[in-house]
Amino acid sequence: MSEPIIQIRNLRKYFGHVHAVNGVSLDVMFGEVLMVIGPSGSGKSTLLRCINELEKPTTGTIIVDGMDTTAKGFDVNQLRAEVGMVFQSFNLFPHLTVLQNILLAQRVVRKRDEKEAESISRDLLEKVGIPEKADVYPSQLSGGQQQRVAIARALAMQPKIMLFDEPTSALDPEMIKEVLDVMLDLAREGMTMVVVSHEMGFARAAARRVVFMDNGVIVEEAAPDVLFTNPSHERTKLFLSKILH
């Protein structure tokens, strides 16, 4: 628990003149659940996407599990196999069944044999609560079910870290809980998680720290109870007043 599994130092990411991330340093401990909140355009998604190199940082260093991901000649695929990612829009592969979605990367990247990969996939479907949906196509599932498959697909790679990019934002309200429950289970099992989301309930139940970002920088970080009830910065207060109604 003492050694940070993700070390971000002075990270900057510019898109032309837009400074999406403008100097962020952050440590994530092994087994920790870290929440990132902030208004849209605050750079929280970009920060997350820099961790598994979906965006290439402009400057700064990111060390994940001892690997310097910003070093020259670094093998991105090696990093990504260790870092699972769950997207707002699920991004399941529509031409494959649920089972094949979970199988594909295990076969292609991890080179597991068919039988082993299938048994892992079925176990994971059990774990996310939809074992009976193995042979249907993503379009035949509800949003909540699709997102749970997406989580199972990422978990099949047995990642050390899971990144969640607004996993419940595209869901109908009654489906949010089933996804959060799966995430809570993961957190209890000790998975290291970085979650971009405004789900206060989840933050209170699972997160040790919440980071508030605005304009590409970290404004403040604190335990969820402290940050949500007694934020120390004006900007945080303003933002929370808007999302808490």
Partner: peptide, 12 residues
């Protein structure tokens, strides 16, 4: 998003 999802699973 399809390419991103595939790449994020470690595929080349």
């Amino acid at each position: 998003g399809q390419m991103e999802a595939a790449r994020s699973l470690g595929m080349s």
